[in-house]
């Protein structure tokens, strides 16, 4: 079963603004090939000030497609079209407390439906400018098309290059075979052979020393802190031991039933911020290790 947030489940089980809006004057029909999902967004826009008075969705799709559609309509109602166009797919995902990497395209579909609806209202033609491929890197949600295009555009030759340009492969490393397969294919098109011993064309990313790394971890934790404090909780850094980062959940977070989920979220932020795979563990485990 997917790791859906409570918010995703809630929007799926009780979607808001389902159905077509009466008297709609903007329609956006889009679909995502990678899931076969499709969405029709209908808007009623005030012609005087271009404010979205009402928004409704009809979705053929999975749980997160329905939840993303529902979230989108909630976000944009009351906005002007210009303000609504600034809504990113990440905003939709954030509104739902995150989406699994395989499901991020559901939020992309939402944003595209909005662009298509606005174009329809303004009498413009909307063209999609991105293509989706098979998901290769699950840590950073990077697909095959993105990797292929980056390899072609930048003459990349190694897995390390790909990681430096796209982040793909920079987490758990399980997708390195998939990245190599893409390199083999693209290099073959250029009449070249993939050689894993080729030196990387990209400069080595500067490796952080221990002090810099801990400072970076604290910066990342500081960026998450406001979210926790909103729920009257907090997190403190206790120790860093290689890939293991030990933290204390304090305030309302301490003993909260959602603590494990919160730790998961913190881990995700640290993995992305540090560009390496790390494990976030409660500090109690540090003690038990020391005693053991």
């Amino acid at each position: 079963m997917w790791d859906y947030s409570e918010k995703v489940k809630e929007h799926f089980f009780s979607p808001r603004n389902a159905g077509a809006v009466e008297g709609a004057n903007a329609v956006g029909d889009v679909g995502s090939l990678s899931c076969g999902d499709a969405l029709r967004l209908t808007l009623r826009v005030d012609p005087q000030n271009e404010t979205i008075l009402d928004a409704g969705f009809q979705t053929f799709g999975c749980g997160s497609a329905i939840a993303s559609s529902s979230a989108l309509t909630e976000i944009i109602k009351g906005m002007t079209l210009d303000a609504a166009l600034k809504v990113t797919n990440q905003d939709i995902a954030d509104y739902l407390d995150g989406l699994p990497p395989e499901k991020m395209h559901c939020s992309v579909m939402g944003r595209e439906a909005l662009q298509a609806a606005v174009a329809n209202y303004r009498g413009e033609e909307w063209k999609d400018d991105h293509e989706e491929g098979e998901l290769i890197c699950k840590c950073f949600a990077i697909d095959a098309v993105m990797i292929e295009e980056t390899v072609r555009a930048n003459g990349l030759r190694t897995v390390e290059d790909v990681t430096n340009y796209t982040k793909a492969g920079g987490g758990c490393a399980a997708c390195h075979e998939g990245i190599e397969d893409i390199l083999v294919k693209v290099l073959a098109e250029q009449g070249e052979v993939f050689d894993p011993t080729t030196p990387s064309v990209t400069a080595q990313p500067k490796k952080l020393n221990t002090l810099q790394r801990i400072r970076r971890i604290e910066e990342i934790l500081d960026s998450i802190r406001p979210n926790l404090q909103r729920d009257h909780g907090d997190v403190e850094l206790v120790d860093v031991d290689g890939k293991n980062i030990y933290v204390n959940m304090v305030g309302a977070c301490s003993g909260c039933q959602m603590a494990a989920t919160t730790l998961g979220g913190i881990q995700q932020a640290l993995v992305e911020g540090l560009n390496e795979f790390v494990r976030v563990l409660p500090a109690e485990q540090l003690k038990s290790c020391a005693e053991g």
Partner: peptide, 9 residues
């Protein structure tokens, strides 16, 4: 299939 033919991406 004709009434709803979305732009696929």
């Amino acid at each position: 299939e004709k009434a709803f033919a979305p732009t696929y991406a």
